[in-house]
Structure formats: structure tokens, C-alpha cells
């Protein structure tokens, strides 16, 4: 069961993600990203510490995120587990987004 919750702190939008992001849950993720994009943040943090699994359809969501946010917005993947981070890295997405191992706070 995938869940994504959006919080806004100043210019930073954080999306807390949990569960499994696959083809069936990707449309929900896309909707949340649309909401985030309308707020024109300076940074988008995708908090993935509770995300168990990401399929290629989920990585497609990251591509969407990168496109919707515009070039000046930093997109950060934070706290992803090893297999999620590997899946993201394998596609080459790490060139366009920042992958942080742990929370910055």
C-alpha cells in the first residue's frame, strides 16, 4: 500500500513516501507531484525511508518530478533503502536528482 503525504515548510516541499511505488500506485504519486509543482518550491524532498520498493513506473514518477519542477528546483531523494537507491541509480537518474543516504535534519 503506497502512501504519499505532502508538507510545505517555506520554500521546501517534502513528500513522505511509504509502501510500494509501482505501476498501480504511480498515478497517485503523479497527482501529488502535480500539487507540489503548483507551489513553485525551491527544493523538493522525496523522503523515502519508509518506501519499501520502487518499480520502473515509480522511477518514471521521478522523471515527472524533475520535469515538472523546472531546472532551478533541487529534487532530493532522501533516506532511500539500498534496493530503491540502486534502482534509481541504475537508470542514471542520479545525474538529475540528489540522492542523500540519510536525513539532513
Amino acid at each position: 500500500m503506497f502512501q504519499a503525504d505532502l508538507t510545505i515548510t517555506g520554500d521546501i516541499i517534502t513528500i513522505q513516501m511509504s509502501g510500494e511505488l509501482d505501476a498501480s500506485s504511480a498515478p497517485n504519486f503523479h497527482k501529488i507531484l502535480q500539487q507540489a509543482a503548483t507551489r513553485s518550491p525551491k527544493q523538493l524532498i522525496l523522503a523515502m525511508s519508509n518506501l519499501v520498493y520502487i518499480a520502473s513506473a515509480g522511477v518514471r514518477g521521478l522523471v515527472f518530478a524533475r520535469q515538472k519542477m523546472g531546472d532551478d528546483v533541487e529534487v532530493v531523494v532522501e533516506g532511500a533503502n539500498e534496493s530503491v537507491a540502486d534502482t534509481i541509480r541504475m537508470t542514471g537518474m542520479e545525474h538529475a536528482i540528489t540522492i542523500r543516504e540519510t536525513f539532513s535534519a
Partner: peptide, 13 residues
């Protein structure tokens, strides 16, 4: 292992 990014992500890949 990968020698480049997935196709369709960036024009300057």
C-alpha cells in the same frame, strides 16, 4: 553494468 543512462531521459546523455 550500465554504460549510460536510460534512453529518453536527457537529450545530452
Amino acid at each position: 553494468r550500465p554504460t549510460g543512462p536510460a534512453v529518453g531521459l536527457w537529450s545530452d546523455a
